[in-house]
Amino acid sequence: MSPTEGPAERPAERTVLDARDISRALTRISHEILERNKGSADLYLLGLHTRGVPLAHRIGERIAAVEGHEVPVGSLDVTMYRDDLRSQPTRSPHKTSVPGGIDGRVVVLVDDVLFSGRTVRAALDALNDLGRPASVRLAVLVDRGHRELPIRADHVGKNLPSALAERVSVHLSETDGDDGVVIA
C-alpha cells in the first residue's frame, strides 16, 4: 500500500446496509408493526429527529400501501429533554409536530440507530408532556448495542454488533442524498 493512496490512517469504512437492504428492512418492520397491532387501528408513527422522521414517513407509506389508508405520522424533537444538555453547547430544537394528538394511540417511536438508549429515554419523557398514549413501541433501523439504560426495541431492521469506538452512520436520501448504513 503506497502512502499516497489517500486516507490510509482512517479505519476502513464498511457498508453494512445498502439502499435495497434498508428498503427490505423497512418493509419487514412495517409488516411487523401491523402484525403486532393486528392492523393499523390507533397506530401513530412518531419519528425522532433527525433521521427517524423520514424513516417514520417511509414506514407510513408502506403501511398505507398494505392497509389502503393513511396512518398519522408525526415528528418529535427531544433536545430539551436530553440528559447531556449541560455537557455541550446548546443546540437549536427541531419541530415537534403531533397532528391530531397521541392520546389513546399506539405510538411507535421510530429512530435510525439505537445505541445508549438515552435518546429513547428523553423521547419517553417528551411523550409524557404531549399526551397519554395507550402504549408506546420502538422501531429502529439499526441496533448497535451498548445500552446504558433498560430499554429495548420492539422492531429492529438490523442487529449490528459494534465496538464502542466504532461509528455507525445512517444516510438517508431525504437528509443525506443517498441511502446506506456505514460502520467505521
Binding site: 424533537d77 430539551m80 429533554y81 444538555l85 437549536s92 430544537p93 427541531h94 419541530k95 415537534t96 409536530s97 419523557d125 409524557n128 408532556d129 404531549l130 399526551g131
Partner: peptide, 20 residues
C-alpha cells in the same frame, strides 16, 4: 428566532413545560 418558533408551539400545548 428559530428556537422561539418551536417554543411558540409549546405555548399552545396543554402541558406547557420543558425540562431544559
Amino acid at each position: 428566532f428559530d428556537t422561539a418558533a418551536e417554543m411558540h408551539d409549546v405555548q399552545r400545548r396543554e402541558v406547557k413545560k420543558l425540562p431544559a
